Amino acid sequence: MARLVLKNVFKRYETKKKVANEYAVNDFSLSCEDGEFVGILGPSGCGKTTTLRMIAGLETITKGDIFIGDSRINDLHPKDRNIGLAFEDYALYPPLNVYDNIAFNLLAKNISKDEIHRRVMEIAPLMKVEDLLEMKPAGLSGGQKQRVNIARALIRRPMVLLLDEPLSHLDGKMRQVLRTEIKRIHNRIKCTTVLVTHDQMEAMSLADRIAIMDEGKLQQFGTPLEVYDSPANLFVAGFIGEPPMNLMKVSIVEEDGKIYFLFPRKGIRVAVPRKYRGMVKSGMNVVLGVRPTDIIINNEAEAVSEAVVDVFENLGDEKRISIDVGEEEFLTITTEDERRYQKGDRIHLQFHEAKTHIFDIETGNRIQA
């Protein structure tokens, strides 16, 4: 195990065409502590897999440095970096059985057969593939192939384990099962691990900390709770959460000495939380952010905002209500209330003050209270 550090890493692919974003990875810095599980999360094309491939040595670094422990690894061959890598497409060798697929990397290093056998028999139960050792890859399910794939990476006893979209080819139920297995294994072996994924559920459930990327740049690095409750900017706020955070352009107005967020098209107004009252003034325009679970339907209280139900969805364990706030913007509310609503019903809303955020319209950055 070892600490993994990326310092101001850039990656540029040579091309004859001029592109708006010159770098696939742009000034990316990250520090993963010894034994930590870090997720790199972002949409397709954001640079996360390129970053992983640079750590593995499969891509050259345009600028910057990568360290494992005290060693700078920029110029080391992949086989000399002591890294385990599990790809999304398994990449198992069809002619070999599971035993030989797991043992393959050790065979290439001329390790003794007794030591190889000992290691295979140690890792196979850990990955729950001990009953599959004589089978060929063609006879395995997707989940079993990925278990073998990860076992092959772990048997090397790497200082850093890299997982590239390991669950992307699996169905929903198997993804959930293998997520739990990966977390269990990490808790047992405590290998410094970097997971690349576009699936926020994977990152939130597996990682100790998450690095969120967009257009090659690091947007925020923090614990799952930090990126969920305190998003650094509009991109993070809209990317994390299902359903996503409500993000709506509002005006600040003052009436009778009180300050409100105003949805101009519908006249809906919501009191500005106390924490922001010294920072905003009448006439300002901001982006208001609030998660669907942090909007309270309170038909009993006075002086709360009235709105009209546009769509009601009964999902069993929760209900979702959509409110038209104008300009093709909709406010989504998630509630466990047993009441059923119809289009046109009037409801009264309160926002959870501590969980309400505002963002600068120009920069997209969250305005700190």
Score class of each variant (00 low, 15 high):
M1T: 10
V5F: 03
Y13G: 10
E14S: 12
K16P: 07
K18Q: 11
V25L: 11
D27C: 02
C32S: 13
C32W: 01
C32M: 13
E33M: 07
E36T: 03
G39Y: 06
C46P: 02
C46Q: 02
T49Q: 06
T50S: 11
M54E: 13
A56I: 10
G57P: 10
T60Q: 08
K63E: 13
K63P: 02
I66K: 01
F67K: 09
D75V: 02
H77S: 10
H77W: 01
R81K: 01
R81F: 07
R81M: 07
N82V: 01
F87Y: 11
D89F: 12
P94A: 08
L96C: 01
Y99Q: 09
Y99W: 14
D100K: 13
I102K: 03
L106M: 12
N110R: 11
R118K: 15
V129S: 06
E130L: 03
D131K: 15
L132I: 08
E134R: 08
K136E: 10
P137T: 03
L140P: 09
G142C: 10
K145E: 09
Q146M: 13
R147Y: 12
L154H: 03
R157I: 07
P158H: 04
L161N: 05
D164K: 04
E165W: 00
E165C: 01
D171M: 05
G172C: 14
R175I: 07
R179I: 02
E181D: 12
R184Y: 03
K190V: 01
K190A: 03
T193Y: 12
T197M: 05
Q200G: 00
M201H: 09
E202R: 00
S205T: 15
S205D: 08
A207Y: 06
I212N: 06
E215W: 03
K217E: 13
G222V: 02
T223M: 07
Y228T: 02
S230H: 12
L234R: 09
A237W: 08
G238S: 10
F239E: 11
I240G: 09
E242F: 04
M248G: 08
K249R: 05
I252T: 09
I252P: 12
E255H: 14
K258A: 10
Y260H: 10
Y260W: 13
Y260V: 07
L262H: 11
R265S: 15
R265K: 15
G267Q: 11
R269A: 13
V272N: 05
P273D: 13
R277V: 06
G278Y: 10
G283F: 08
N285R: 14
I295W: 00
I295F: 00
I295T: 01
V308C: 10
D310P: 00
V311Y: 06
E313P: 00
R320P: 08
I321D: 01
S322H: 06
F330N: 03
F330T: 10
L331G: 00
T332R: 00
E336A: 09
E338W: 12
E338N: 14
Y341N: 00
K343S: 11
R346G: 05
H348T: 08
H348R: 14
L349I: 15
L349G: 10
Q350I: 09
F351Y: 05
K355R: 09
K355G: 01
I358Y: 01
D360G: 12
I361P: 13
N365A: 02
